[in-house]
C-alpha cells in the first residue's frame, strides 16, 4: 500500500536530452528568475483531500514570504529535483483572514494543530531557529489547491484542482502514523518530540470556525468542470 504517492513512477516521458540540458544551462545564466529565488524555506508537512479525507499526502512547501502576513508557496510531492509540482498554497495572518468574506473563509484551513502536533517541520533547520516562525504560523490560515493527484496514480495532472485540508486532532483529520513515520525517518526527526518541544507555543485564542469547515459542518468543497459559452472578442480556437 503506497501511502505516499510514489513520484518515481510519474510522469512518463524520455530522459532530458543533451540539447535541452544545454539550453536550460544557458537560460539559467541569462535569466534572472527573481521571484523564484525568494523561496527561502522548505517545509515538510501533510495534507488531506477535502473531497476524500481518507486520502492523506506528504507535502513539501517552498515558501516565499511576501510580507509579514502573507506567504505564497509552491508545493511539491517530494524534495527531489524531479519532484512533481502538485499545487500552490497561500498563507495569511489571522488579521487578514478575519477580513475575508464568509464564503471565502470556508475554503481556508487553520495551522495551529499542524504546528503544535509537530507535523509542520523545517527539515535540517534547528528547532530553536524555527521557533519564532512557528509561533507566527500557528496563528495563520492556509488555502491549498492540489492540481496533481499522484497518490491515486495519476501519471499526468488530471481533472479539476482539489481543495486540501490540514491535519487536525479529531476525526478524519488525524494523520496516519505510517505516513508520519516515513517522513520522520527521511529527515531523522521525531514528530512526537517536536510536539513536546512545541508545548510552549501558545494556542491561538481564537480559531475561526469557518476555517476547517468540515470539522464544524461535516461538509467539504469539490470542484466540477463546467462547459459554458465562452465570452469572446474573437474566434476561438
Amino acid at each position: 500500500m503506497a501511502l505516499t504517492g510514489d513520484e518515481a513512477k510519474v510522469p512518463p516521458g524520455d530522459p532530458v536530452t543533451v540539447s535541452t540540458r544545454l539550453i536550460d544551462a544557458g537560460t539559467t545564466i541569462m535569466q534572472r528568475r527573481l521571484p523564484v529565488r525568494e523561496m527561502n524555506c522548505h517545509v515538510s508537512t501533510f495534507a488531506i483531500y477535502g473531497g476524500d479525507m481518507s486520502r492523506q499526502i506528504e507535502t513539501h512547501h517552498y515558501v516565499h514570504r511576501v510580507n509579514g502576513e502573507f506567504l505564497q508557496c509552491a508545493v511539491y510531492a517530494s524534495d527531489r529535483s524531479n519532484a512533481p509540482l502538485i499545487g500552490i498554497e497561500y498563507i495569511i495572518s489571522d488579521r487578514l483572514y478575519e477580513n475575508l468574506p464568509n464564503d471565502e473563509q470556508k475554503l481556508w484551513h487553520s495551522h495551529a494543530y499542524e504546528v503544535k502536533s509537530g507535523s509542520w517541520a523545517y527539515p535540517r533547520l534547528p528547532e530553536v531557529v524555527a521557533t519564532p516562525e512557528l509561533k507566527n504560523i500557528a496563528k495563520t490560515y492556509g488555502k491549498f489547491w492540489c492540481t496533481w493527484q499522484i497518490d491515486r496514480g495519476d501519471k499526468l495532472p488530471m481533472g479539476a484542482p482539489e481543495l486540501m485540508m490540514s491535519p487536525q486532532g479529531v476525526g478524519q483529520g488525524v494523520l496516519n502514523p505510517e505516513l508520519v513515520k516515513i517522513r520522520d525517518e527521511k529527515y531523522n526527526i521525531s514528530t512526537d518530540e517536536l510536539k513536546h518541544q512545541r508545548a510552549e507555543i501558545a494556542e491561538p485564542e481564537w480559531i475561526n470556525p469557518m476555517a476547517d469547515y468540515w470539522k464544524q459542518h461535516g461538509k467539504c468543497f469539490v470542484l466540477d468542470i463546467g462547459t459554458v459559452e465562452m465570452n469572446r472578442n474573437a474566434q476561438f480556437p
Binding site: 514570504r65 509579514g68 527531489r80 533547520l125 531557529v129 524555527a130 519564532p132
Partner: peptide, 26 residues
C-alpha cells in the same frame, strides 16, 4: 498585497533556512 512588513526575527529564520535547507525542486 496587504500585510505588515516582515519582522527582523522572521527574516532571520529565512536567512538561516536558505543556508541549511535544500531546494532541489526549486
Amino acid at each position: 498585497v496587504p500585510g505588515e512588513p516582515t519582522k527582523t526575527g522572521t527574516s532571520m529564520v529565512d536567512t538561516a533556512a536558505a543556508a541549511v535547507q535544500s531546494f532541489a525542486p526549486i
